[in-house]
């Protein structure tokens, strides 16, 4: 057998990345003092998990969805309701909500994925708005916009209370490390290659014996599941929330995170989630200018850097180092 190649090397360096992330979570969790900083990082981590799902769907498989907020909402409501009314232990509730969001995603993906590009974008957008209307109107279940979900009990594992910001930081950090490991494994596998291939050319991919529809459906399901996982963690951390969280705005933010990061590397989703979450802290009166800023970023990146901002920077760097390496 031949020595394993650059592919094994790339996989190893990604694994190193996960290890570094885990170390950063441990160090951050034990040294960060201000709870405000912890909170911002927790939100970044939660959104990063959903953005990783978006990365699988949009970045790897090239299928757009502007309705991910629906699955985020399903995850959040399912775990909040399971915790408040059914008294289900949090870990089980999170797992169950993830599965429920994934199942919902699987169900709607079969018809939706018969559509491509513009029609798929428009259909997922319409789907997202319909779900938002349902979240806001099914008040007996969700509490609607007002009062919404009032108090989800804090997160705990086997009776240990983990509801403090510091404890949640570790919980979300662990979930994020696990998620990115799974996504990296996927990228560096037969399945991940098939998904990247179908983004490049569906016809050619099918011609190699790959059931394109099945793979697209699976990618959509995974993306929905990860959005659901993020939603469940969100519900436990935020405790009180209402339907307005799960509007189209959230779907666009998730898309923005992937585009700001990279459409070709899962690390971009982490960077994008961090960027989009902490951006408001740099600007006073951010709420007023939020949409304008998001709009400018989305537009500029899509016009000049269609592979994502992060990717373009990395590509530029690579080109420069290659040029200096081979004079």
């Amino acid at each position: 057998m031949m020595a394993r190649s650059f592919l094994a090397r790339r996989y190893r360096s990604d694994l190193m990345g996960v290890a570094l992330l885990a170390v950063a979570v441990v160090i951050g969790g034990s040294t960060i003092v201000k709870s405000y900083h912890l909170t911002m990082l927790i939100y970044s981590g939660i959104y990063a998990i959903a953005a990783l799902g978006m990365f699988v769907l949009f970045g790897i498989a090239g299928q757009i969805s502007i309705g991910q907020a629906a699955f985020f909402g399903v995850g959040a409501y399912a775990s909040a309701l399971a915790a408040t009314h059914a008294g289900i232990p949090p870990v089980l509730a999170v797992a169950g909500s993830t599965a429920m969001a994934a199942a919902f995603g699987w169900l709607v993906s079969r018809p939706l994925l018969r559509l491509t590009t513009n029609y798929l974008a428009m259909a997922t957008l319409a789907f997202g708005v319909i779900c938002f209307i349902l979240f806001a109107q099914l008040r007996s279940l969700t509490g609607g916009i007002d009062p919404g979900i009032v108090a989800t009990p804090g997160f705990s594992v086997a009776g240990f209370d983990l509801s403090s910001a510091r404890a949640m930081f570790f919980v979300v950090g662990a979930a994020l490390c696990g998620t990115i490991l799974l996504v990296l494994n996927l990228v560096h596998s037969r399945v991940g290659r098939a998904l990247r291939a179908l983004k490049g050319s569906e016809v050619a991919t099918a011609g190699l014996g790959i059931d394109v529809v099945r793979y697209k459906v699976a990618a959509f399901t995974l993306a929905a599941g990860l959005a659901g996982l993020a939603g469940a963690l969100f519900a436990y951390f935020q405790s009180a929330f209402n339907a307005s969280v799960f509007s189209v705005g959230l779907s666009i933010e998730l898309l923005l995170m992937v585009i700001v990061g990279s459409v070709s590397s899962p690390w971009g989703a982490l960077f994008g989630a961090l960027f989009v979450t902490i951006l408001p802290t740099f600007l006073e009166d951010f709420e007023q200018y939020k949409l304008l800023i998001y709009g400018v970023i989305l537009t500029v990146v899509m016009i000049y850097m269609p592979d994502g901002f992060g990717s373009t920077v990395v590509q530029l760097g690579r080109r420069l180092t290659r040029r200096t390496a081979t004079p």
Binding site: L7, V191, R193, R196, G200, T205, L208, S264
Partner: peptide, 24 residues
């Protein structure tokens, strides 16, 4: 009909897809 953003080796590995079995 090649796949953008994919190395030569990986592109041909997609061709070998049928001889693997790993699922999602």
């Amino acid at each position: 009909q090649l796949f953008a953003e994919m190395s030569v080796l990986e592109t041909v590995m997609v061709g070998a897809h049928l001889s693997g079995r790993a699922g999602f």
